[in-house]
Design a protein around this nucleic acid. Structure first.
Length: 389
DNA sequence: GATCCACGGGAATACACGGATG
DNA sequence: CATCCGTGTATTCCCGTGGATC
């Protein structure tokens, strides 16, 4: 072994066994290209999209279900696959009776968490339909709409999925429908949300809504074990542990993955190669029940995330009131009034929970403090990883 | 010159409470 | 007793400004 080998070996010291081999693969924010154990649900989604395989535009749709059960993961995976089929075989599948030479429609997935204005939504759609770079500002919104129209006219059209249509920061659903009116009629849309169809005005314009159900316990265990197999060192977690988390999560895959992520990160930080019962306990208790998804938190604009990142490291004293927290958040390069406004806004959006201070005898309106309404340890790790580079 | 958007700042409003008023 | 008022905070609302693009 020569010196350079020795040096490389030193460099690769970090390549010694780690519990977590890939944070991405166990993160509740990332989706697998092949969802685990969701065959029947995938079939129902494919039923809806099936006309596209013969070059026809499927009806508009509404996919719904309670939070955390993998709606985004499933739709994302389906759209991704369909889009790649379109890309790989530009002509539609040949039937046994005749050759259909029409092209298949394109498939587009837009997250209304991330794209919170009509302009941004148009831009995201256009970005998936064309290769050229798209202006980020300086052009009127209608110009982007026109470009989408120009691109699609005379083609097989497109199916556009808008995820999280009923999110607090999302563009109003009615405005989205209005927006699709301006596009050629070879465009279909599929909205994904949490609201029951009766409460979702959009369903006036859709085919029968498609409900996604919470994961059965065994499926959720499979999901956890599958993620662990991909992202953790072999033997990091056993079946009983996965069952423990699955039971706690009651069909909510997002929360179960969050708990697993925290448990694994805790064990990793402690230098262990397997996850203990205490790690899992810590993981479960750090995931708030009825919290908002980490996807929603990670979709926030950079400065909001920076505020959150600093906020979750403040000690209880510094977070006693919104005013105190604002004053303590000096590491963020924003004015105090902006930080304060961010905190109130994020509370409005459900990202933070406002808790009234117990009545005291100070004059004036009693303050409230804000607490994260998401799995803070997961956000801390994902945010820090995203900052390295 | 137009357009979109994040910031920043401050006005307006809400709330709590003690004390005054009708 | 029900209201109103004044004071002190907290919270919400709104709009101007300026950077970055086109």
């Amino acid at each position: 072994m020569d010196l350079s080998d020795r040096i490389i070996r030193r460099q690769q010291r970090d390549e010694l066994p780690h519990l977590i081999e890939d944070y991405e693969l166990i993160a509740p924010t990332s989706h697998l290209e092949e969802p685990i154990g969701r065959g029947p649900t995938l079939e129902r989604l494919l039923d809806h999209f099936e006309p596209a395989l013969e070059g026809r535009i499927p009806p508009n749709g509404y996919i719904y279900g309670v939070r955390g059960i993998g709606k985004s993961a499933l739709v994302w995976a389906v759209i991704r696959q369909l889009a790649s089929v379109t890309a790989v075989s530009p002509t539609a599948i040949h039937t046994s009776t005749r050759v259909d030479t029409r092209r298949m429609p394109g498939f587009v997935y837009v997250d209304a968490h991330v794209h919170t204005s009509l302009f941004a939504i148009y831009r995201a759609i256009l970005d998936q339909l064309v290769d050229e770079p798209i202006p980020s500002q300086g052009v009127p919104t209608e110009a982007l709409a026109d470009r989408i129209g120009d691109r699609l006219r005379g083609t097989a059209g497109a199916v556009i999925c808008i995820d999280h249509v009923d999110a607090p920061r999302a563009v109003d659903a009615a405005a989205i429908v209005e927006m699709f009116r301006m596009l050629p009629n070879n465009v279909a849309w599929v909205a994904i949300g949490e609201l029951e169809p009766a409460a979702m005005p959009l369903t006036r314009y859709t085919d029968a809504p498609i409900r996604i159900d919470p994961l059965r316990q065994q499926v959720l265990i499979d999901v956890l074990m599958g993620r662990a197999n991909r992202g953790l060192t072999p033997g990091a977690i056993d079946h009983a542990a996965a069952r423990q988390v699955a039971t706690w999560a009651e069909g909510n895959a997002h929360d179960a993955l969050g708990a697993l992520f925290i448990a694994a990160d805790r064990a990793e930080t402690a230098g262990r190669l397997s996850i203990t019962h205490a790690d899992l306990q810590a993981g479960c208790s750090a995931v708030p029940t009825d919290g908002v998804s980490l996807g929603r938190v990670m979709a926030l604009p950079p400065n909001r995330q920076a505020v959150l990142r600093s906020l979750i490291d403040l000690d209880a004293g510094a977070r006693a009131s919104v005013t105190d927290a604002t004053a303590a958040l000096t590491m963020v390069d924003l004015s105090a009034s902006t930080i304060k406004r961010f905190l109130y806004e994020m509370a409005e959006w459900g990202i933070l929970t406002r808790i009234q201070s117990p009545v005291d005898h100070q004059p004036g309106r009693p303050p409230s403090r804000v607490e994260p309404n998401f799995a803070a340890p997961v956000f801390r790790r994902l945010y820090d990883l995203s900052q390295r580079q």
